[in-house]
């Protein structure tokens, strides 16, 4: 067996090493879930059936997105950035393993820990208070696949942002831009279905839609049959494109490498 399953396992253990911290984040995600739910309810009271969602769909969407904040790391960031900034990446680059594959495995472990510790509480709390749309077994299985792909796309985007630290000495700029794009175009601020016309179509075609909007639609049962395959294909396509870009950028970074700090 290769080393990557172990990288996954130790990533999982590393990120589940502080359960109290994760719990605190889950409580925060849940509290914000309720605030967003009431905002969305007010919106849907004024505009029923907006974007094809009913009020229950909108509230369900809200709690799913809150549950996915941790697993897809919607606010951005990856430990690799700091390692590039400090030069510790030299150690990663020395190891007999590809940089992107290693960090992907580690991040999938992190996501699994986040899903376990931070995914459940917002959904459960939401379901106790509001009548949520609950998927059947088929939609649940499809949702699991969509979440996995969302995590991969989320990783690929954050990896690209992290690699920019090889070129840009202050990584906060790219991270700030990435954060705005990620929040706005993933559906985190408002479901993309309410975006009008061309903006809506563009948002649905961009990779960030694969992070939140697509898994949520799968959960809500709005993608079935060929539509479901299209949704998963859309996520997988972006995952491949972005990981490919990551591989190219990794090679470019190696060529151009200046390891900061000696």
């Amino acid at each position: 067996m290769g080393v990557l399953p172990w990288a996954w396992w130790f990533g999982f253990r590393r990120h589940s090493a502080y359960p109290l911290g994760a719990l605190a984040e889950a409580v925060t995600n849940t509290a914000f879930g309720f605030m967003r739910a009431y905002v969305l309810l007010a919106l849907w009271a004024a505009r029923p059936a907006l974007g094809g969602y009913d009020a229950a769909d909108a509230v369900t969407f809200c709690f799913i997105t809150q549950a996915l904040i941790g697993p897809v790391q919607i606010f951005g960031g990856i430990d690799l950035t700091e390692r590039i900034r400090t030069g510790d990446v030299a150690i990663d680059l020395h190891r007999p393993v590809g940089l992107q594959g290693w960090w992907l495995a580690d991040d999938l472990g992190r996501a699994a820990a986040a899903l376990l510790l931070r995914g459940g509480p917002p959904l459960l709390a939401g379901a106790l208070v509001f009548p949520l749309t609950v998927p059947g077994p088929a939609a649940s299985a499809a949702f699991a696949a969509a979440v996995l792909l969302a995590v991969v796309v989320g990783f690929a985007l954050r990896y690209l942002v992290a690699l920019s630290a090889f070129w840009v000495h202050d990584h906060r700029g790219p991270e700030a831009v990435a954060l705005v794009l990620s929040l706005f175009f993933s559906g985190m601020i408002l479901p993309l279905v309410v975006f009008p016309g061309a903006l809506g179509s563009a948002a649905m075609a961009l990779p960030w839609a694969a992070l939140i909007q697509v898994p949520a639609d799968v959960f809500l049962g709005r993608r079935t049959g060929a539509g479901l395959l299209g949704a998963l294909g859309f996520q997988a396509g972006w995952a491949l494109v972005l990981l490919g870009a990551g591989a190219l950028l990794t090679r470019a970074a190696r060529r151009r490498l200046v390891v900061h700090g000696g």
């Binding site: 130790f10 253990r13 590393r14 090493a17 400090t86 030069g87 510790d88 030299a90 150690i91």
Partner: peptide, 8 residues
């Protein structure tokens, strides 16, 4: 630097 994993 360290090659070890901080949290493990």
């Amino acid at each position: 630097r360290t090659t070890l994993w901080w949290d493990l």
